[in-house]
Simulated scan of single mutants.
Amino acid sequence: MKKKIIIVIGMLLLFYNCHFVSKEVYPRYMDFPEVRTLSLAKAISCDSVYLRYPYRVEIKDSLAVILDLHPDSCFLHAFTYPEWRYITSFGRRGEGPEEVLSAERVRICSPDSVWVLDSNRRQITRWRISASSSNVERAEEILLDERLIRTLDFCKTDEGFLVTDYTGNYRYHVLDAHGQIKESIGAIPSERSMEDSGKTALAQAWRSFVDYNPKNGVLAMVTQLGEVIEIFNLKTGEHYVYYGPHGEPLFHISQGYGLPIGIMGFHDVKVTEHLIYAVFQGISFKEIARSEKQGIHLPDGGSKLYTFTLTGLPVKCYELNKPVCGIWVDEVKKLFLATDVFTDNLITRFDLKK
């Protein structure tokens, strides 16, 4: 009788392991060939505008736009680059017909094509900005496909947009110029087995920040939780997935929602002509909860800047002397700019040459 019980228990444990324990499917990187310490080179401030939470920075030629995630009035603020002369603020927060409910990301194609994602309104708007006259005009509204679930990031292409998927069925969608789905690509590269009922929670846990470079056709995705980088080359059709030391996003499912239990991962990603740059944090939720109980607020943002090849191989880790959030990289001048959410400075500049 005891032997039968042991056999049954063994079979149950085997079933449990097969159903819940992940198998390594994707390659891993454990460290970087080179680690360097990178100190702040310059702090850039602007007395003309106050930002509560400078979340993202986007630059194209002589125009720079900073996105304030929690503004008092406007979500977006335009400056000249590299002088950082204030031009104007736009995207007023509110529920009016031409106001913004929530701004998640800004992309610049030209001064006449500054694109802003409003996830709550389910639309992407195009703005025109004139540096000479300090005028801004809302030029176009693109209503997103009804099949999309609260889009949180996007990239602009010549034909339309690339947006992340939150149904759990795909990795991203290709939209036309009218915001309608043309094609749905990929699947979440999880090594965990998951029932269909848990796909939405899986998609929430696998929320990723994205960036696309039309010159080389590389779309990079990095996970907000855990440590996974994923690369799609839209020109060659190649696809790469790499797990870092912290692995994929970990979570529990509660009432259909994914509750994170692992670490805070990446904060932003930028694809240049030759490399992929990503800001990484790596603090566990246990550590965050323990600090909050002690009345200590751990800083938002990441204090490591990772660089990868365009196929996802680790190149270099820069250890920063302060945490940063959104980034923009000038590969020619060998510098990167980052939003600073902890001081009155809008932007901090780091020199990659030193």
Rank of each mutant, 00 (worst) to 15 (best):
P299L: 07
M194Y: 12
E248S: 08
S89E: 08
S113N: 14
H246R: 13
F308D: 08
Y50A: 14
D211H: 10
A64G: 07
H19K: 14
I6H: 03
M11K: 07
G94R: 10
L144Y: 03
I276V: 15
I66V: 15
C155V: 02
Y306K: 05
A203K: 00
E191H: 03
Y166M: 10
R52H: 13
L101P: 00
I253D: 09
F342R: 15
G198M: 12
R52E: 11
V341L: 14
M264T: 13
N120I: 13
S190G: 01
F161M: 01
R122I: 02
E24D: 15
I288D: 00
K2G: 06
D176I: 05
M11P: 00
H239D: 04
I129T: 02
N213R: 12
F20N: 13
L250W: 08
P214D: 06
Y172S: 00
Y166N: 08
L225G: 05
Y170F: 15
I283F: 13
Y16D: 05
R290W: 05
T272C: 12
S193P: 03
I253Y: 11
L337N: 05
I124R: 04
S113Y: 11
A177K: 14
T272D: 06
E227P: 05
F350N: 09
P82A: 08
L346D: 06
M264G: 07
P111S: 10
R56P: 01
V106M: 00
N120S: 14
L320A: 08
N213L: 02
F32N: 04
E238F: 03
Y81K: 10
G256S: 03
L219Y: 11
C155Y: 02
E146G: 07
D31A: 14
F285E: 07
H252W: 15
S184R: 10
V210C: 07
F336A: 07
Q123S: 14
V116E: 01
A205K: 07
E83M: 05
E195D: 14
Y318A: 02
S291V: 03
L69C: 06
S254C: 04
E140N: 09
F232I: 02
L69A: 13
L51T: 06
L13W: 04
D153F: 00
D61K: 14
C325T: 10
G168I: 05
G295L: 06
D300K: 09
Y306V: 04
Y257R: 11
R36F: 08
G244T: 06
H77M: 01
S133M: 12
G301W: 00
C46F: 01
I253V: 15
E99Y: 02
S254H: 09
I288R: 11
A187G: 05
L313D: 13
G198T: 06
L275M: 11
H267R: 10
T167C: 04
Q204V: 00
V100W: 15
Y166D: 04
C74T: 02
